[in-house]
Amino acid sequence: MSANEPSTTPQYADRVFRSVGGVMGGVLLLALAAWLGIDALVNGSGRTRLLSVAALLCVVPLITAFTVRPAVYASEDRLRIRNPFRTITLPWATVETLRAHFSSEVLTKDGAKFQLWAVPVSIRARNRANRQAAKSGAHDAHPVAAAGDKPHRAPGDQNIDDLRELAERNADREGAQGPAEVKWAYEIIAPALVGALALLVLALV
Rank of each mutant, 00 (worst) to 15 (best):
S7W: 02
L90F: 10
K183C: 10
V20I: 15
W117Q: 08
L98H: 05
L163D: 04
L163C: 07
G111W: 02
S52W: 00
R124D: 14
N127A: 10
R18Y: 04
L29V: 12
E187H: 12
D77G: 06
N170S: 12
G175F: 04
D162I: 02
A3M: 09
A196P: 13
R99L: 03
A190M: 12
V205R: 11
G44W: 00
A3K: 11
F85W: 14
R80G: 01
V121P: 01
P179F: 03
A133F: 05
E187R: 07
A129K: 03
P191E: 07
N127S: 11
V121K: 00
A112E: 13
R47K: 08
Y73C: 01
V201M: 08
Y73T: 04
A133M: 10
P143S: 09
L204A: 15
V72N: 02
A185Q: 14
L36M: 10
A176S: 15
A65V: 07
G156K: 00
L62P: 11
R173C: 09
S122T: 10
N83Y: 01
A40F: 01
V72Q: 02
I81Y: 00
V182K: 10
P155W: 00
A74Y: 01
E174F: 06
R124N: 11
S122E: 05
T8G: 08
S104F: 01
R78I: 03
A125Y: 02
V121M: 03
A100F: 00
A133T: 12
D149S: 08
R47P: 13
R47A: 09
E96C: 01
A129T: 11
A3E: 14
V72I: 13
P10S: 06
A167L: 03
V72E: 01
H139E: 14
T94G: 04
F85N: 14
G44E: 04
P151G: 07
L202A: 10
A180C: 07
D140M: 04
A176G: 10
P70Q: 06
A192Q: 07
E96N: 12
K135G: 03
V68Q: 13
H152P: 09
A65H: 03
D149T: 13
